[in-house]
């Protein structure tokens, strides 16, 4: 048995090249690769952290920018506790793609998550804020507000700005949500080693697609 209290699944999405992998590697490994190869399919990383003296394990699924939801296996987002939608503050184009990503989230993740009886935490992240920006902060904030994001943050994987903070806040929100939903008593129902156990049984191997 592993020694963590909670395990949360986080899925990163967003256009190719906005720095999703760099963000994850900065957080999970503390490094910033000078050149990071394109993610093909999906990548996976684990990082544990302490939230209020409780050990929380984050399972981070880093998806390929070009894949979009249609080919990401359903079970990734079905059982996701948090979706991080990333754009590049230096690239208006990546920001302009956000509405499409939001539609994808609603279409593919919405129903599945509702079926699980819980809400996915939606987070918007503007990465590369160390660069000259094309996307003004207030515009992005407005967008996050209008599209019901639970959290918005600008980060820099290069300068490690807000990266730790981003994941820590996500972990804190998820922990407090989970405590509330369990009436204060912490249960391990959500913390199973296998991420699908908390969802309905049909949600496994066979309905897996891509």
């Amino acid at each position: 048995m592993e020694d963590y209290k909670y395990l949360f699944k986080i899925v990163l999405i967003g256009n190719a090249g906005v720095g999703k992998t760099c963000l994850v590697r900065r957080f999970a490994q503390g490094v910033f690769p000078n050149v990071q190869g394109a993610t093909i399919g999906v990548d996976f990383m684990i990082k544990s952290l302490m939230v209020n003296d409780v050990k929380v394990k984050l399972q981070i699924w880093d998806t390929a920018g070009q894949e979009r939801f249609r080919s990401i296996t359903q079970s990734y987002y079905r059982s996701a506790h948090c979706l991080i939608l990333v754009y590049d503050v230096f690239s208006q184009c990546s920001f302009d793609s956000l509405p499409q990503w939001c539609r994808d989230i609603d279409q593919y993740a919405g129903a599945a998550i509702a079926g699980n009886g819980r809400n996915v935490l939606k987070v918007l992240v503007g990465n590369k804020c160390d660069k000259d920006r094309e996307v003004p902060l207030h515009i992005a904030e407005q967008f996050a507000h209008n599209n019901n994001f639970d959290l918005f943050m600008e980060t820099s994987a290069l300068e490690a700005e807000n990266v730790e903070k981003l994941f820590r806040e996500i972990a804190e929100i998820l922990v407090s949500r989970n405590q509330e939903s369990n009436g204060g008593t912490m249960s391990r129902s959500i913390t199973s080693n296998s991420f699908n156990q908390s969802s309905k049984p049909s949600n496994c191997f066979n309905c897996f697609s891509n």
Binding site: S71, F205, N206, C207, F208, S209, N210
Partner: peptide, 27 residues
């Protein structure tokens, strides 16, 4: 996506789902 019925290919006799599913060729 190619739609097909899992059990028609008989992937796994003890599968938990018999719902038709769709899969890419690579899948």
């Amino acid at each position: 996506m190619i739609s097909f019925k899992m059990d028609s290919i008989n992937f796994e006799p003890f599968s938990t789902s018999l719902e038709p599913s769709s899969c890419s060729v690579l899948g």
